[in-house]
């Protein structure tokens, strides 16, 4: 009788996860027109230079979201998945280069000078994405954070990055230049599978499922905002590069935008570890 109940709950948890996976795949953050049009629009190295300048801060902060969440994880079981993913983020399966280092190699291939990676003005939606994820991982319940860095990232990134890679190929990037992106197609598929196993144990109650789903959707909402921000930048930056002397609609918007270097200096993170007892 007990095993039948456990089996039913597990089945129900898997149904929930399947349905969440489908919801994520259909989310406009994953299906943003900037990604979907990689197949049909012309894409150039300059476009990816702009994209990289905006995306790099997300890459460089992801590990910290995970580390903060790890601090708040209620049990060793909860820590295990986060720790496994973190080991990859630190460079376990990328020849010792952490993910930010791999990304910098891509940035250099896209035309960003070494050492200047953090010096580009950031669209407000880039800053918004980072702040939102720190908020989720430090102030929301643990399972909301897990939903954001778990399904919200691991189940969306392979699909989004496939589109990006279509554009990279169109823009003439060599396979070596695309290592960061290709690596995520494999690693995130693994992370996603590990995650599913980990999540089964956490989504036994409707409340827990709702928290995981809410975290995923909060992350994807920030992701959709992020892509709009990147599109905004790409549209105007490319115009400036191709038609010098013609003022874009966004002229002057960059004057007040912080660089990633500015953002890092001004970022304060507070973690309330007392919240752990609330989760237990």
């Amino acid at each position: 009788m007990v095993s039948a109940v456990v089996c039913q709950e597990t089945q129900s948890a898997r149904d929930f996860l399947r349905s969440l996976r489908e919801e994520i795949q259909c989310h406009p953050g994953v299906g943003h027109s900037l990604l979907g049009r990689m197949l049909t629009d012309p894409r150039t190295r300059h476009d990816f230079k702009i994209l990289a300048s905006q995306h790099y801060p997300l890459v460089a902060n992801f590990t910290t979201y995970m580390e903060l969440l790890l601090l708040r994880a209620p049990s060793s079981e909860a820590k295990r998945w986060l720790a496994k993913v973190l080991v990859d983020e630190y460079g376990e399966r990328s020849h010792g280069d952490d993910h930010a280092a791999s990304y910098r190699a891509f940035m250099h291939a896209a035309g960003i000078a070494p050492g200047s990676e953090a010096s580009y003005p950031l669209h407000p939606e880039v800053v918004g994405f980072i702040r939102e994820h720190y908020r989720i991982c430090t102030q929301e319940p643990f399972l909301v954070g897990l939903g954001a860095v778990g399904p919200g990232h691991e189940w969306s990134i392979p699909t989004m990055f496939e589109h990006v890679m279509t554009g990279l190929r169109k823009a003439g990037f060599a396979a070596d230049d695309m290592t960061y992106w290709a690596m995520h197609l494999d690693q995130d598929a693994d992370h996603g599978a590990w995650l599913e196993e980990a999540l089964v144990a956490f989504c036994e109650t409707p409340e827990a499922r709702e928290q995981i789903r809410r975290g995923a959707l909060l992350s994807l909402k920030a992701r959709e905002q992020f892509w709009w921000g990147v599109l905004d930048k790409i549209s105007s930056e490319r115009t400036k590069a191709m038609l010098p002397g013609v003022a874009p609609a966004t002229a002057g918007a960059e004057d007040t935008q912080p660089t990633y270097a500015d953002l890092r200096q001004g970022l304060e993170i507070r973690v309330d570890l007392g919240a752990v007892s609330d989760i237990l």
Binding site: Q25, C26, G31, S33, L34, R37, T40
Partner: peptide
């Protein structure tokens, strides 16, 4: 316009 994307 929206992109050739199954999500849309």
């Amino acid at each position: 316009i929206l992109g050739h994307n199954p999500a849309r």
